[in-house]
Amino acid sequence: MECQLTIDLTDQKKEKPAHDKLAFGVHFTDHMFVMDYTEGKGWHDPRIEPYSPLTIDPAAMVFHYGQAVFEGLKAYRNQEGEVRLFRPDQNFKRLNRSLTRLDMPTVDEAFMVEALKKLVSVEKEWIPTAEGTSLYIRPFVIATEACLGVRASHTYKLIILLSPVGAYYASGMKPVKIHVENSYVRAVRGGTGNAKTAGNYAGSLKAQTEAHEKGYEQVLWLDAIETKYIEEVGSMNVFFKVNGEAWTPMLNGSILEGITRDSTIQLLKAWGVNVVEKRISVEELFQAYQNGELEEAFGTGTAAVISPIGEMSWNGNKMVINGAKTGELTQKLYDTMTGIQYGVVEDEFGWSVKVTE
């Protein structure tokens, strides 16, 4: 790969949105990172250029056969003006796993981290400073070859977009209501469930819409074989505190290997909490609830970091968890994780990567 990064800065900068007007993923910075792949040449021409629409052939294979993968992470600015990334190396490792699963060319992870740091540095003025705000980062790769043959593309484009986002819990952390989904499934072992690919999310939208119509914020996905084992909640990994232990579904090939999930497990173990990664049936969880042993529940992911679950509905049974209030362990995880991300809590794990001093 040609690793000489070129930079073309715009002379027409956009007006930045007010911090109290930020929504998720609707505002974009002045520049983006772009890199191309050509079979026989590899990845080439990495560059930072002005944000602009793409010109792409309507026969591009991404539109027809879905070769598209993406990642999500954030940059954070603390009160001292330091800009930090949270475990960006893990995002590019996972990007490569997704690329491999969809028969797409992998990238040089170390180079991508450095390229991302440069892009964030160029756009550091876009990082909001209000409490809880951040700069969302969306790397993605798409197949660009114009061909309707059913095969892997010979050309690709990798792009990184940056988007300033508001605080996820602008009015305070509130537990959500979850519907256990019995009709639709998210993924199956041997499929693409452990890849962060566009089709997984498209396939989840119908169930999400129906859950909203029933008054629930999220869907709890069950396995596709027996529809009895818990997998993910919405687009997040999920944890349950049961009788003092932290339970989370074991990685099985259909569950995305969340970076926040892994960070949560490491924190819990460091605190002496017994973490159990196993197959968790919804029946077993309901039994724990009836026995008074289901103490807390929460999802983990980039956007919310930690999202408390206050109520679950399964086959007409309603489980109200911890009085529908955020649990003590849930809150501690959120405060510690976000504290590390913003550089205000000691980082004993080496997760926080400085972009600027």
Rank of each mutant, 00 (worst) to 15 (best):
I265L: 11
I265G: 13
Q266L: 08
Q266Y: 04
Q266M: 12
Q266T: 10
L267M: 15
L267E: 13
L267W: 12
L267I: 15
L268V: 09
L268K: 09
K269H: 14
A270D: 09
A270V: 06
A270S: 14
W271K: 05
W271S: 08
W271L: 09
W271H: 03
W271E: 04
G272D: 03
G272E: 02
V275K: 02
V276L: 00
V276I: 04
V276S: 08
V276K: 10
V276C: 06
E277C: 08
E277W: 13
E277I: 14
K278D: 03
K278I: 01
K278M: 11
K278T: 12
R279I: 07
R279Y: 09
R279T: 06
R279Q: 10
I280W: 05
S281W: 03
S281F: 07
V282H: 00
E284A: 13
E284N: 10
E284R: 09
F286G: 02
F286A: 11
Q287M: 14
A288H: 10
Y289G: 14
Y289Q: 09
Q290I: 12
G292S: 05
G292N: 07
E293I: 10
E293T: 12
E295R: 04
E295S: 12
E296S: 14
E296T: 15
A297Q: 14
A297T: 10
A297I: 07
F298W: 15
F298H: 09
G299P: 12
G299V: 09
G299E: 00
T300Q: 01
T300D: 01
G301Y: 04
G301I: 08
T302G: 10
T302Y: 02
A303W: 05
A304N: 08
A304V: 12
A304F: 06
I306F: 00
I306R: 08
I306K: 01
S307E: 01
P308M: 03
P308D: 00
P308E: 06
I309T: 05
G310T: 03
G310N: 05
E311N: 03
E311Q: 14
M312K: 07
M312D: 05
M312R: 10
S313D: 14
N315Q: 15
N315R: 07
G316K: 02
G316W: 13
G316P: 06
G316S: 01
G316F: 05
K318G: 01
K318N: 05
K318R: 08
V320F: 12
I321W: 13
I321P: 04
N322T: 06
N322W: 03
N322R: 07
N322I: 11
G323F: 12
G323D: 13
A324I: 08
K325V: 01
T326M: 10
